[in-house]
Design a protein around this nucleic acid. Structure first.
Lengths: 153, 153
DNA sequence: GTTGAAAATAAATCAAC
DNA sequence: GTTGATTTATTTTCAAC
C-alpha cells in the first residue's frame, strides 16, 4: 500500500467503472501499473468487492429505517445467533455494533411499514436477547456511500 | 424494468465484477441481452454508479461513528446550507434525514477520535442550526452494504 | 516505475431468426 | 427474447528499459 494504491482506492471507491486508461488522469501511473495494482488490491482484499449502487426509485422506492437496539449481552451464544440472523436478512443492509445507549444500529429496507413491522416481529420472536428497539423512519438522504477517505488524496 | 432487469440488479448489487457471460448463470438471458440491459440500467440511472468497497483495514482502520443530531428547522436556508455542508465532507459517508428523536443520522469516518472531534467542532461552528448531537462509536460491524432487496429474487 | 507489442477476454454492434 | 459473426475496447502478459 503506497501512494499509488491509495490514489487508486480513492478513485475506485468513487467510481469503479473507470478503465485503467481513464484512471491515468487521477493516478500518476501507467495503465499497465494501474491494472496490475487493481488486481493486487482485489487479491489482497484491500478492495473487498465491487458493487452496483441501485437507485431506490428503480426498485419501488422502499422505505428505509434506522433502528437502534439494545440487547441482553450476557449470553455469548445468543449474541452469535443474533449476528448470524442479521447477516442472513436481506432487508438489513447494515448492522453496526456500537457503544452508547444502543448496542446495535441497523439500516433496514422494507417495501412498506407493514413489512418492516413483520421483520421486527420476527426479529424479536427469533432472538430472545433483543430487549428493545427504536425506529427512525428515513425521510430522505443527503448522501449514501461507503467510501473511506484516503489520507493522501 | 422487468424480471430480467430485477435479476440483474440483484446480481450486480452483490457483485458488479461479473461478466455478461458469468451473469447468465443467475439471470436467465443471453450475454447479448444482459450487456444491453446493463448499459440501459446505467443510462437510465437504475444503477446510479458502481463502486469499490475498500477494506477499512487497508486504509488504516479508521474509527466509524454513528451520529444522531437535532437541528433547528425553522430556517430553510440554513437547512440547505447544512445539507450542502454534509455532502461536501468526505468524512461523512452517509447522511440520512429521519423522523423521531433525531433529525439526521450520520455515518462518519475519522482516523481517530481527535479528528472526529475536530470535524464535529467545525460542524457546529459552520452550521448554526445544529442544536445537539449524540455519538455512538462503532465497535464493529456485522454487515456493511447498500444493496436493496429485489422483489422477484 | 515506464513503454510498446502480442494474446486473450469482454463488450458493443449488427443481422437474422 | 435468441444465436452467431464482427468489430471495438480492455485487460492481461510479457519483454525490454
Amino acid at each position: 500500500m503506497d501512494g499509488y494504491d491509495r490514489q487508486l482506492l480513492a478513485a475506485l471507491q468513487a467510481d469503479a467503472d473507470q478503465t485503467a486508461e481513464q484512471l491515468t488522469a487521477r493516478v500518476a501511473a501507467s495503465p499497465s501499473a494501474i491494472q496490475r495494482r487493481i488486481r493486487r488490491l482485489k487479491e489482497t482484499g484491500a478492495i473487498e468487492r465491487t458493487v452496483a449502487i441501485a437507485s431506490p426509485r428503480a426498485l419501488g422506492s422502499p422505505t428505509f429505517l434506522v433502528v437502534s437496539l439494545e440487547v441482553e449481552r450476557e449470553r455469548p451464544e445468543l449474541m452469535a445467533h443474533f449476528r448470524r440472523w442479521l447477516a442472513a436478512e436481506d432487508q438489513i443492509q447494515q448492522a453496526y455494533y456500537v457503544t452508547g445507549n444502543a448496542d446495535f444500529v441497523l439500516i433496514v429496507t422494507a417495501t412498506d411499514m407493514e413489512s418492516y413491522e413483520a421483520l421486527m416481529s420476527r426479529m424479536l420472536a427469533e432472538n430472545s436477547n433483543v430487549r428493545r428497539y427504536h425506529t427512525n423512519v428515513m425521510l430522505g438522504h443527503v448522501k449514501r456511500g461507503m467510501a473511506i477517505p484516503v489520507p493522501g488524496s
